[in-house]
Each structure stands twice: as structure tokens, then as C-alpha cells.
Design a protein around this nucleic acid. Sequence first.
DNA 1: TGGGATATAATGGGATATCATGGGAAAAAC
DNA 2: GTTTTTCCCATGATATCCCATTATATCCCA
Lengths: 153, 153
Amino acid sequence: MAVFLSTFANKVDRKGRVSVPASFRSVLERQASSGLILYPSFKHPCIDGCGDERIQEMVDSIDRLDAFSEEAEDLQTILADARQLTIDGDGRVMMPKDLLDYAGISDTIMFVGLGKSFQLWEPDAYAAHRDEKRKRARDRGITLPMAGRGSDK
Amino acid sequence: MAVFLSTFANKVDRKGRVSVPASFRSVLERQASSGLILYPSFKHPCIDGCGDERIQEMVDSIDRLDAFSEEAEDLQTILADARQLTIDGDGRVMMPKDLLDYAGISDTIMFVGLGKSFQLWEPDAYAAHRDEKRKRARDRGITLPMAGRGSDK
DNA sequence: TGGGATATAATGGGATATCATGGGAAAAAC
DNA sequence: GTTTTTCCCATGATATCCCATTATATCCCA
């Protein structure tokens, strides 16, 4: 599997560990990711996550902006707040407390696949967020502008 | 065969497994699909399905949008709700319970070929849906402009 | 063109492997 | 020396693999 797909609800144990969903692990391994990178979302009360590949792309993208622009500075805060977690032999990571607090997570984490990246949510918050997004998508009339096809025009 | 055609009714066994129709499997294999992707339909009480190829295109398309745009977020909900199922040695997949619930499926699934994709329906719901669609097509007088021909202009 | 023989398909069930999770002990940090 | 982290093993649930059975479709040859 090459992309982060689907959602998974896993438990945070008393030591602060969580199992990374097996399918997410296989995506990360394929990226030769030495682990997994998390940072607080600046749009939502959740945690954004990805592998090394994606972070590298983000760094390159930011680098392409004007060096001292406000935009570049804002985006650089993502890098400053990011954490690199190593996955242990059982497929788990230690969740930093401040990130859990930021997302309002207590004992269960929703892993949400978004293709090239993923998010971690508190289950109820995610349910609300998902409903809102789906509703908006439906109201607008969702269309998939597919790459590499005539309809893409 | 290169496209998903015809309809097939297969049983969901007590373990939640279903045989993917052999002709659908051969289409997926031709795509080098390691499996099959399912997600709840936006428009109907049924499950949409396709191969890896199509999802990969979708991910690439979304990736081309601005990383934190609303449009990208709406489209990502599809990825979050999608499931990748692997086809076992006997040509079967494990159906996730929530998808079965969404489509109201209990013990029999209708596989409906739609060319480049397909749908899974509860048999009675599909019969009703099919009648309605056929009736509408007849009332309107259906026409099909074929691609790649003079008439296409 | 029959009509039996041989694939292919769908389905069922038991054995095995994988995954998520919990807890203890060793190692490292403070 | 106490706390925190890392490593290792145990467990239950669930998915996966493997084999058997049946039905249908395809093939082959008289």
C-alpha cells in the first residue's frame, strides 16, 4: 500500500504509548521513514502527521518562498513544533503529552488517512469534523479533478 | 476483460468474507492492483469501489492543490472513509462492518460493474435503484456521445 | 451433437499468523 | 535513587491461509 487511507481508533495506554496502524506502518517503511513526524495542526484541534518524505517536500516548498516573508516564517513554525517519533519493535510510539493536550486526546486516538499525510484526532472531535466536511462537500457538489485525464482540463 | 461489467450476487459468509467476482478480479489484476478500494457513496446508500490505480490518481490530484486549502480537505474525506482490502488466495475480501451497515447489506452483496469502477448494493435496494434509473433514461430519451470518433465533435 | 471428463468458481470450516494491547524488567535519564 | 523510557514477552481478538466441497461452465472426443 502506498498511501495513508481509512481511519483507525487505537488506545493510548497508561505509559502514553499507541499502536500505529499496521497499514500506516507499511507506508512509512516504504518511504524508508526512520519513524513518524507529528506537529500540531494550525487549522484544527488535531495533530498532523507524515513520514520523512513529506517533511522533505514541505521543507523544499517553504524554501522556495521569499526567505524573510511572513508566509515563510509562519510555515517554519510547523517545522519548529514538529516531533520525530521512533516506532518501537511492537509498532508503537510514545505520544508527547503536549500534543495530546493540544488535540484534547485522553485515551483513544483516531488515525485518519489523508493520502500523503494523516491526522490524529480525539474521536468525538473527529466525528464532528467529518460530518461538517462531508456536508460541505455534498453541498458544493464534490468533483474529483483527476490527473492525467481528459476531464482534468 | 478490461472493464467492470455486469452484475453478480455473492454471499457474505459468517466471517464477513465475500468472493469478488472472477471477472472483476481479472480487471484489478490487470491494473496491478494489490487489492480493491471501497468507500461509501456520496449519492446513494451503496458502496463505491475501484482499483488502486484510481485512488493513486485521486491522491496525486489532491496533492496538486494547495496543501491546506478547503478543497483539498473536502476531497481528503473520501480518502479518510476509504478502505483498502486485500484479495486473499481464494479471491475473497473481508467486508468492514460499517460499510455493510451503510449500504444495508446483510448476507448478499450485488457487485455492479460501471466500467472503470463498480458499486456494491443490497440486492433489493439495487433492484429499486435500477428500475428508477432505467425509467428515467427511457423518459428522457438517452443518448451517448462516443469518445474518439467523428461523432464526438 | 451428445455426454462424460476436466477446469473454474463460489463457499464453508479449521488451523495459523498478525495485530492491538497490557504488563514486567532492563536500560537510560534526571 | 527515583523516574522515565525502551525492550521483551503474554494474551485475546481477528484476519489470513489452506484445504475440502459443491455447482456451474468449459472442454474433449467419440
